[in-house]
Structures are given as C-alpha cells and as structure tokens.
Amino acid sequence: MIEESFVQTMSLTFKLAGVTTLFLLMIGIPLGYYLAATKNRLKPVLEAIVSMPLVLPPSVLGFYMLVFFSPKNAFGQWLDETLDLRLVFSFEGLVVASIIFSLPFMVHPIQSGFSALPKNLTEAAYTLGKSKINVLFRALLPNIRPSLLTGIVISFAHTVGEFGVVLMMGGNISGETRVASIAIYDEVESLNYGAANQYALTLFLISFAILLFVYAINKHFLKAELS
C-alpha cells in the first residue's frame, strides 16, 4: 500500500519535472538568445522579471498565481470556459507554476552561454548566407552545449525540490498534485517518520547524483574544448 503511493508520488514528481524542463527549454532558448543579443533599453526590466523567482518567497508567487488562475477571476474563468483548463489544484497548474518558478534557472545559463560566444560567429554565418534560425541551430546552440546541459539539469532538479509554489497552487491531491516534497511534509504531520525518511532520502540522493553529473560532465566538456 505504502509502496504503491510512494511510486505514484515519485513518478508524478519526475513527470512534473520532465514536462516543466521541456517547456522551459523551448522558452529558455529564444528568451536567453534575445537577452544576450538585444540592445533594447527595456532589457533590464525583462531581466528583472526573469530573475524575480530567485528572490521572491515561493508562497508569494504561489498566492498570486492561485488568485490569478482562480475560476472566480476573469482570466481563470476564461480559461475554464473557453479552453476547459482549470489551473488551480491540477497537474497542468503545477506545470505552469513550475515553469515560472524555475525560469531563471534555465534562462541564466543559456543567456551567459550565448553572451560568451564571439559576436562574429553570428556575423560570419550571415556572410555565408545563412538565416537567423539556421545560425541559431547550426552555429550557436552546438557551441553552448555545457550551458544547455546546466540549464536542463538545474531546472529539473529545482522543480523536483520545490515546495511552496506547489503547495499553494496544487495542494495535496494524491496522483494529481502530491509531489515528493509535499508528501514529506504530509507524512511528518501525521508523525509517519519512516515514510517521510523514504522520500527525503530518495530526494537527497537524486539531487546529489544530478549535481555530481552536471559538474563531472561540464568538466569533461571544458577539457574537450581546451584540448
């Protein structure tokens, strides 16, 4: 019985982290590229918005998202009626919240990766007749692989570990919104320390393994680039 709910919670946790990371990658590449290339005066505003989740308490973010997406408010109602999408206390809502919450962890490494590339790589590709999209995929992205990897892994790990936003936005619905970090809290509240430890230790080991992987791989990447 316990085993089944453990497996369900862990697989939900990784499903959430996986889906979130995938969306973040699709958002993070164009956003990071734009931030690295733009000379727009409004760039600091955009950068501040992207970085907000780093400093804001997750409960603040969760609270506003809860209010914003609630079917009692205009936007939430519109989503509910036209797209049949309810974001509060649902898995979809957790994905949206996690994307916003982990955004800086994906955008920052990608942005600094693009910034570190020589500007004339892009210009050289233009003079060779290549379109912007072609240049991005053929000449730039392959050269920021370490940054992409860092972004993917850190975003994934950060989503696995988040608590406040998930609790505010998703609550604690088994199989829908109960992820590992929530489950630990839940088990401790019911003085079920053994089960809490099972979750805690699993998260502890996975987080360590993920970070070890990033640092080992990036060292390997750096070596390969220097040789």
Partner: peptide, 9 residues
Amino acid sequence: FQDYALFPN
C-alpha cells in the same frame, strides 16, 4: 575576420 570566426563545433 581578424580572429577567424571558425565554428568550433
């Protein structure tokens, strides 16, 4: 270009 701008990948 002065610094060649070859694609490292």
